[in-house]
């Protein structure tokens, strides 16, 4: 770890000011990803702005009937919050499918979005990586790539965003509130994270020094018919190989509205509007779900060791949609991996 200075900001304004007052600053919330990267010398900020004194921990209903999640509320406090559990159980279940209890007690909501899209080559300073060192090459293409992207990748980078929480936030169409020197602005969730393209070193669309202050959930929470299905190499404390956030609004057996987002398959949470369109207005049957699954993975490309993810994603989507239609997942937050 390189030497750095650190200040603990008492207000959002002070944090934003302090950030821009130093070269090579970074905000530190829970620190669970940033400190890990710093220990490996992958991240080398020379100044840290500590956020854990900021008054951004509240979770409250908005005037529009949605829910505003403070940026420095922990993932655990968010997942177990009564309003989140009752109105956005998809989000609660996704958060609890990720990391470990200790990490969820540390990690903040803003930090969950800010964790790096990454793979093991990103962490390995002995290998080329365009995300860590632009222009150096991608070691995963033609290398060990079992965990890598099948959708939206580029010749520069095939890493995946490992968050579970963000997959649910994508499906729920959350809005990210950020503050910078230029004031506050809102970013639609689908516009927050980037695909790698030819600038894989950029994971998101934040401007330098902008700070996430809140995540806003719209009123519609799909609390009756949803599923977060996470498939991984062990049943707890592992990144997803493929995960699916499925949310349905049913009118009898007809699908009135649908959301579908995938994790573990791309540089960002992956949504397919075409797949959602194939669900809307259709009967909630396996035949319908299969068409949506096919549309979701359209254009998917395997890298060799991760070819299996394409078929795994198809099957996971069908299963998650069945679970969502059955509506039986709301009562057990632990049951996120099977049947």
């Amino acid at each position: 770890m390189n030497p750095f200075t650190l200040t603990r900001a008492e207000s959002v304004d002070a944090a934003v000011r302090d950030f821009s007052g130093h070269d090579s600053s970074a905000y530190i919330g829970g620190g669970t990803n940033l400190l890990d990267l710093m220990k490996e010398n992958v991240a080398r900020p020379t100044h840290l702005v500590g956020l854990n004194k900021l008054p951004l921990t509240s979770i409250e209903t908005t005037a529009e009937g949605g829910l505003r999640l403070g940026a420095t509320a922990t993932n655990a406090d968010t997942a177990w919050h009564p309003d989140v559990q009752a109105r956005y159980p998809l989000l609660s279940q996704a958060i609890l499918a990720g990391a470990s209890p200790q990490l969820r007690n540390m990690a903040t909501n803003g930090g969950n979005l800010m964790q790096r899209t990454r793979c093991y080559y990103f962490y390995d300073l002995a290998t080329p990586c365009n995300k860590r060192e632009p222009g150096s090459g991608c070691s995963a293409i033609g290398g060990y790539n079992r965990i890598h992207a099948i959708l939206g990748a580029s010749e520069q980078c095939i890493a995946t965003h490992p968050s579970d929480m963000c997959v649910a936030l994508a499906a729920l169409e959350a809005v990210v509130h950020v503050r910078g020197n230029g004031g506050e602005r809102r970013i639609k969730f689908e516009d927050f994270h980037r695909l790698p393209g030819d600038a894989p070193e950029q994971d998101n669309t934040l401007k330098a020094g902008e700070l996430i202050v809140a995540l806003e959930l719209p009123k519609k929470g799909f609390e009756k018919n949803f599923s977060y299905l996470k498939l991984r190499d062990r049943t707890s404390y592992a990144f997803a190989l493929v995960s699916v956030a499925a949310a349905l609004e049913l009118d009898g057996t007809t699908i009135r509205d649908a959301r579908l987002a995938l994790g573990g398959v791309a540089h960002k949470p992956w949504r397919s509007p075409a797949a959602e369109d194939l669900l809307k207005g259709q009967p909630a049957t396996e035949a319908t779900f299969r068409k949506a699954a096919e549309a979701s993975v359209e254009g998917a490309v395997g890298q060799g060791a991760n070819d299996f993810k394409i078929e795994l994603a198809r099957r996971a989507i069908v299963r998650a949609l069945k679970q969502a239609a059955a509506g039986g997942k709301a009562t057990n937050v632990f049951n996120n991996s099977n049947p």
């Binding site: 650190l6 603990r8 890990d36 500590g50 854990n52 200790q102 990490l103 007690n105 540390m106």
Partner: peptide
């Protein structure tokens, strides 16, 4: 929490 992933000053 994991004490290895937080800074003492925080």
């Amino acid at each position: 929490i994991n004490s290895c992933l937080t800074l003492a000053v925080l």
